[in-house]
Write a protein that binds this DNA or RNA. Sequence first.
DNA 1: ATAAAGAGTGCATAAGTATACTATTTTGGA
DNA 2: TCCAAAATAGTATACTTATGCACTCTTTAT
Lengths: 149, 149
Amino acid sequence: MKKRERHRLLQDLIQENIVEKQEDFVKLLEDKGIEITQATISRDIKELHLIKTPSAQGGYRYSMPPDIHFDTTNKLGRLLADAYVSMDILDYFLVMKTSPGNAQAVGALMDNATFEGVIGSICGDDTMLVICHTPEDAQRIKEKLVSLI
Amino acid sequence: MKKRERHRLLQDLIQENIVEKQEDFVKLLEDKGIEITQATISRDIKELHLIKTPSAQGGYRYSMPPDIHFDTTNKLGRLLADAYVSMDILDYFLVMKTSPGNAQAVGALMDNATFEGVIGSICGDDTMLVICHTPEDAQRIKEKLVSLI
DNA sequence: ATAAAGAGTGCATAAGTATACTATTTTGGA
DNA sequence: TCCAAAATAGTATACTTATGCACTCTTTAT
């Protein structure tokens, strides 16, 4: 049993069982004849970005991540690779120039990616204005964006 | 400091700080002059459905829920209040009759709400067929839907 | 082939979280 | 107003999860 394989299995199990705690995973795998410890499950969960959600019925349940984040961060990287022109910071504003017509798309993806410290953004045709909480936030986000390109 | 007020505050704090554990919340609130214990935070988190996400950088962080669930569950409830006609179960199928023209909408919302145990659904004009993993799932989902009306 | 580096895991335990119990406060009637 | 019921929150603790360490098994480079 390879780690990769087990990861797939976990993602399946999570869909078809109510998994309230990591020990439940251990038991479910045991039922399939797979010996594994809670420690490993904990590590798996970390790698898979699974989350423990308080369910509406009062209990808890592990489930799939709102992986929007990872996914859209990737998309954003690809888009920026094409569309990025320049960036500047003024106080707690971040101004990005993009190739014509792309600012809206960048803004939309940034919204999805939910960067911390961003209050909001306004996009024109080739310019995006990002309003941050603090100048430090602006700087941090600039660096984050640069790292994606 | 009312619970409601604190809940708002937590939702704010979560946006602007990296909250790795519940004690961090306690400290942040303390900074604001609010005395509260970890136990209460744990309860708040449960009520707000906040989640602890393994972050890409290796640490953990509390964040907002993929609240799509709650929101669309509510919408679904309102729609069903208007459109629901009847439900029947056959093996692992669930068949719902709706008022004419509404089945598609119900199906779309159910997709968003991501009910566990649902493989998929097919919608006509006034009929929705939901295919579940097991008859028990079908039963459970039926009850869940009834409870929403 | 062998050394060196790295991945994967269990064990034990530290770290973090949830909850039973209790006390106190608030709310909604009568 | 006064009581009973419901909500809220602290304390202590049980429960759950994360991780340092040690060991084994792969992989990579020499």
